[in-house]
Design a protein around this nucleic acid. Structure first.
Lengths: 117, 117
DNA sequence: CTTAGATATTGATGGATGTCGATGTATAGA
DNA sequence: TCTATACATCGACATCCATCAATATCTAAG
């Protein structure tokens, strides 16, 4: 079914391609993968991903994340949305609290694309 | 000597840190690494890196790179400058031609930071 | 149902970024 | 020295993006 798909999502694309240094990345693949890197290419979002990933249980509550930054609550919410929509973070609501978790396969695939031999 | 350095370059920082998912990335480290990801987080620059890396001899002439895109020569020159200043590409002038080469260790270090276990 | 707390959305704003045309600089050859 | 070619820089423009204050939404508790 994936073969019939004309446009791949960033997450699908990053898992499909041979490493950057192996063969020239096709233009449409590049367009598809770039948003994933863009999502990571911000110091606040890098720290968010890192804090979430390093948290006990692999997930973190937004309330804790807000406290880790000197930024307004809407700004953190915005960054979390960017990471979630890029496919890097999963989102679960439990009661009043929202928990985010890192999709490690996506990070692994991205790393393989960038640094793969 | 590296210990006395107060601010690390992106390239130095990316080689110094444990993986994202291991422990929370410090704020200053995040600020330092982000530019490297920003440099990669563009479809044109992703393709540039890929084309250069996959070229015979591991380097490519700007003249060839220009032909690979439907963009103006100044635009390609700009993207190459961004990649060079980020520390991802080396630059060599031979006669009238300029050759760029990928610094693979930097890509590897970046991959280890993102996807390291 | 009302209130309080947690998170998301909206709208606005200043600054960064991708792109181009025009121009500058350097090198090789005639 | 003059010209042609390769590449970089400059200045301008449109778009995108990080951030905030204000507000909305959702849930639990009373």
């Amino acid at each position: 079914m994936s073969k019939s798909q004309l446009t791949l999502t960033p997450v699908e694309t990053v898992a499909c391609c041979s490493p950057l240094v192996r063969e020239p990345l096709a233009a449409d693949r590049a367009e598809s993968v770039a948003p994933l890197l863009k999502a990571l290419a911000d110091p606040v979002r890098l720290r968010l991903v890192s804090i979430v990933a390093a948290s006990a249980g692999g997930e973190a509550c937004v309330c804790d994340l807000n406290d880790a930054f000197d930024l307004s609550q809407p700004t953190i919410s915005h960054h979390l949305k960017v990471l979630h929509e890029a496919g890097l973070l999963d989102r679960t609501k439990r009661g009043v609290w929202v928990y985010y978790a890192v999709r490690r396969e996506v990070l692994s695939d991205l790393a393989a694309l960038i640094g793969g031999a």
